[in-house]
């Protein structure tokens, strides 16, 4: 083989290797998801484990989600008012604020905050448990660490996410109301009635909830997989934590596009 052909073959081999690597990675992630789901039956008998995880995954993320939601709603109220008042349509401010929150910003921003707040913490926790042999230790105590450690966290993530997104949206609408009606003088009745007329419970609110369920699943799954698959060293855990935030954010934004196209496209 001549040198250029060999170099080309080397490149091809490298490409192939990384392709196989990615597939292997995805395969491991799916196997882990299966094992996690397999533990759900066990979880029913130990609700206490779920409760504790709902606390650290849900309750501890609630404050940042609530504060961000309020501010995002207030900004929407302000920006929306400036633009809509140019067309004399400030009556529809409520629609604009609520539609953008319920359909998009609620699920998406809450999921991004969740990935940064709870997802990174989950990865670091699991990664360190692996590094300090706690997971091995459980295995040697004849306790399945996936069932006992990962599954409750997974369930807590999926339960928390829609609730967090709903809080985000609801407080956002209140923030928009405060700025629009309270500060800028939009009519109180028009704000709510226009909103109620244009926002649909099934098309908008329910679809938002479905989106956030999907985001909750994906973010928690990524976080747990990264932690469980992390190199058991300090560098490994720190890299895995970064990867969790990056992968979750990209996954949320990409999935949001797909889900939006499926739900709201005609």
């Amino acid at each position: 083989m001549t040198a250029p052909v060999k170099a080309l073959m080397d490149q091809l081999a490298r490409l192939g290797r990384s392709g196989v690597g990615v597939l292997e990675h995805l395969g491991r992630a799916h196997l882990l998801l299966l094992s996690i789901l397999g533990g759900l039956g066990d979880l029913v008998r130990r609700p206490r484990l779920l409760l504790i995880q709902l606390f650290s995954v849900g309750v501890l993320s609630a404050l940042i989600v609530a504060v961000s939601g309020t501010f995002v709603g207030m900004v929407l109220g302000l920006q929306g008012y400036y633009i809509l008042s140019q067309f004399g349509a400030e009556q529809t401010l409520g629609v604009m604020v609520a539609a953008s929150l319920v359909r998009e910003l609620g699920p998406v921003v809450a999921a991004l905050l969740f990935a940064g707040r709870a997802g990174s913490a989950l990865t670091a926790e699991i990664g360190l448990m692996k590094a300090t042999e706690q997971l091995s230790g459980l295995e040697m105590m004849a306790v399945d660490p996936i069932k006992r450690i990962l599954t409750p966290r997974f369930a807590a993530g999926i339960i928390s996410m829609p609730l967090l997104a709903a809080m985000f949206s609801a407080l956002g609408v209140m923030g928009g109301y405060f700025v629009g009606v309270g500060l800028l003088g939009v009519d109180d009745g028009a704000f709510w009635s226009q909103m109620q007329a244009k926002i649909d419970t099934y098309d908008d609110v329910l679809n938002g909830v479905i989106k956030s369920l999907v985001f909750g699943l994906v973010c928690t799954w990524i976080a747990l997989f990264q932690g469980y698959d992390a190199d058991p060293t300090s560098v490994g855990v720190s890299r895995a934590t970064t990867r969790t935030v990056v992968h979750s954010s990209l996954a949320v934004l990409g999935l949001d596009f797909i889900l939006t196209a499926l739900m709201f496209g005609e």
Binding site: V102, L163, S169, M195, Q196, I199, D200, V205
Partner: peptide, 11 residues
């Protein structure tokens, strides 16, 4: 919050 979204924000 979910109740608020379904009853007050939408109808």
């Amino acid at each position: 919050a979910l109740f608020f979204l379904s009853m007050k924000v939408s109808n």
